[in-house]
Design a protein around this nucleic acid. Structure first.
Lengths: 114, 114
DNA sequence: GTAACGTACAACCACATGGTTGTAGATCAG
DNA sequence: CTGATCTACAACCATGTGGTTGTACGTTAC
């Protein structure tokens, strides 16, 4: 199971990072194309420092990376982080399906008895 | 895109709910089989009230439902919430792949010129 | 009826989070 | 060199979060 391969804290940081609309929007933007932090900041009705903090949260969650280019800091989306989160949710769905499978087995056994 | 079909707040509540190791463990348990709140509380090194709060967070995020049975409250995992979150991440992956596709197109054009 | 059980909820606390402003250091343009 | 730009970071503030304890109330068992 994918879950076991990760430390719980990393997973928590991942979902925590995704639990904010502004940050999700940033992720969507930088997955499409790289943006400097100040370019990103132009998009939102909040201070540059606030956007800077959001980017930092995303970076700690491995959802984006930053790269210095001259005086700018270029933010790039990291699809690996997104995939990690998606696989975790796949695990939950698999757990659930196994349960449904067991229930159907039980029903099938009842069926046999009739 | 699935993202558009949901209010941002719901999505935030979803990921927020998943951003805690105890809550993720509760989700995993109740996806396998129903548990009463007090049964769940036995599993963790924290008070009953704390577990109760975690369940409430999961309920608001539509990741579990509660059903009264006598004096007990039975918690059941709701796979729909999990699937919603997974589909959102699928959207991000799709966005990213489109970008990669465009980059490859550009590289292909350069190739043509050589 | 009474005691134990399962739950709900309020009050409280420490700390994290999301925002602000302000200051300072690099880097680029002219 | 100077000024504008981009970033980093500290300090601060309001609010949210994750935990606690205490109290109250319906339900079950005896």
């Amino acid at each position: 199971m994918v879950v076991d391969q990760l430390h719980e804290d990393e997973v928590s940081r991942l979902f925590q990072a995704l639990a904010d609309a502004t940050r999700r929007d940033i992720v969507a933007r930088v997955l499409v194309a790289d943006h400097s932090v100040s370019r990103l900041a132009e998009q939102y009705a909040m201070s540059f420092a606030a956007v800077q903090k959001h980017v930092a949260v995303l970076e700690r969650a491995s959802l984006v990376t930053k790269e210095k280019r001259g005086r700018e800091q270029i933010v790039r989306g990291e699809v690996d982080g997104v995939q990690t989160a998606r696989r975790l949710l796949d695990d939950y769905e698999r757990i659930w399906r196994q349960r449904v499978g067991r229930i159907e087995d039980i029903l099938a056994e009842d069926e046999d008895r009739n």
